[in-house]
Design a binder for these strands. Sequence first.
DNA 1: CTGAAAGCGCTTACAG
DNA 2: CTGAAAGCGCTTACAG
Lengths: 354, 354
Amino acid sequence: MPQPSKRKGKRAPTLADVGLKAGVSAMAVSAVLNGSNSSVRISEETQERIRKAAAELRYRPNIAARALVNRRMNTIGTLIVLDGLELNHYFLEVFNGIIAGAAQHNQNVTVFTLRTWSEAREQLERAFDGRIDGMILIAPILEEEFTNGMSADMPCVSLHSNVGIEGVVNLESDEEKGAYDMVSLMVAKGHRRIMHLAGPKGLLGAERRISGYKRALADAGIELDETLLKSMAYSDEHARNVMKKWLQENPRDALPEAIFCANDQMALGCVEALLSEGIRVPEDVSVAGFDDTLVARVTVPPLTTVRQPLREMGVEAVSLLLKRIEGNEDDSVGKTNSIVFPTELVVRKSVVER
Amino acid sequence: MPQPSKRKGKRAPTLADVGLKAGVSAMAVSAVLNGSNSSVRISEETQERIRKAAAELRYRPNIAARALVNRRMNTIGTLIVLDGLELNHYFLEVFNGIIAGAAQHNQNVTVFTLRTWSEAREQLERAFDGRIDGMILIAPILEEEFTNGMSADMPCVSLHSNVGIEGVVNLESDEEKGAYDMVSLMVAKGHRRIMHLAGPKGLLGAERRISGYKRALADAGIELDETLLKSMAYSDEHARNVMKKWLQENPRDALPEAIFCANDQMALGCVEALLSEGIRVPEDVSVAGFDDTLVARVTVPPLTTVRQPLREMGVEAVSLLLKRIEGNEDDSVGKTNSIVFPTELVVRKSVVER
DNA sequence: CTGAAAGCGCTTACAG
DNA sequence: CTGAAAGCGCTTACAG
């Protein structure tokens, strides 16, 4: 539902106004002020006169008019879901990178929100009405069928996408290795009974962490105990509840020696549940997170976790998107359709020698 | 520096294209699809035909063209400073509210960032080039002279502004009372030697918390000890350093019984400094924060703090701004120029009976 | 009740 | 080297 309703107040000065004042055509002003690749050559003194007139009138080019002819708004969109109206830390870090990247390239960024990813296609259609030049999909969970032909007239880039989308480069990190490294660290510290609080079933990222967990166990000759592998939503609340329930249902001597959580927020909930039963971290049980978001540094004890370079990924997403928009993509990117960033173990205090 | 460069690909369908297909004029299509207040009446069946044609062509109105004639983009801007490239928790909560408010009113929000507030005026000039209809200034620190005539052709609303800006409504919360309540709580719990880690000198919000602190002390008949009042930047790092230094310079028996920090992040740094010297919170000393941001819930112990309704304030900022843009402001708002939200004590575990 | 025209502010060919 | 014209896609008066 559009809401056309004019802004009040006096008209802003236009190119013509400046031209009038400087005694030249609007076109000349355009050429001087927004000096494009045109072959126009205007004498230094006229240029000076034009600039002076523009300054005096406080002329600002109207971006909508320029966009209309250039078909370019110089603004990119970000699409995210606001689950439970909370922006999470993952988003905070990524967004930070996107903002920084956009600033570098003189682009603005506008934020589009979704309640669920099922609305994505519709929202995309609406967003691509000339107000943005491209979109960054943040951790989308899309149905294959929705993505058909999506990228055709809508330049997109995705971060941690759940599906491959034709024509859309996806940025991800080596989560399998991150998980493998973390669980291997736990093993090296003498833990053998290692629990994994995993992300939702079916999500690519969650599955990758699970497989890293399994591989590390296998490599250490530890048999997988299915009762120590729990899938749930990526939230501290879910982790807290699952962990509390587990503690009620199991005898104290069944307690795992270490718990690897699929993200930092979950680790938080896990620690809280443990604490509420009088179980200390890391004295009684080691706990690790994933992502290295803000919380990891401020918990007590500080979380041992796996860092994904989320901010850098945000920066890179912008620059890839811009290439896509301008139509000069790197061939390598076009082929692979996916770029993976390294993960890195961040050792703090929550995982200790057994 | 503009970057005009055409987007590739085929032209999107226009009103004329739809009209052609439906056998009517572009104007008729416009009237049906974007049904404004025009007196146009079109027969039901023609309408149907038009809608069908639009759907088949996947017509989407071009927002830049519409904006050009309407002088309205239906997007609002937010202006913030990215200090040290970190978006903080304060921003996260406020931004969340802004997003939600904008969604309610069918507006988009675009984010403009500054390195320092001294760039604000210039950035505002650039932002108001037709791409946004209004701006929300988030915690601006402006010089009086910069604000002259600012609001004339740039509808703005501010949150926690440091100065009154003519024509700009400022949303704030009753920080003086919040601080007063917190310090009074400490007094009620038997503390008399109460330290205040304050925000930067000269900032309105910081000053208000200080005066609440002083008033509570006075009302309790406790004489102000200037050595227990320290001003610093609003960050955990500064609080940590100041507190560490204080601990080194003062004998252990000079330790305050309670410490009221000007925000949650500072409380965090304070707790860390204390902990690193073997001083336990809250057993040895009570600590309180301010803002009730995410961190307050996840520290150990959870922080007793003062809640400002940041999210609600974000929502309200949007709706006030929209009124301002549409030129139908409430008279009361125009007069007061400032709206104050209530603060609320949030009692958790970091402040205990002495 | 419907359509042709003008115009929003800019830029890009194209003439002089 | 400079200016007049056309057009980007839409909406708003204004004629029929």
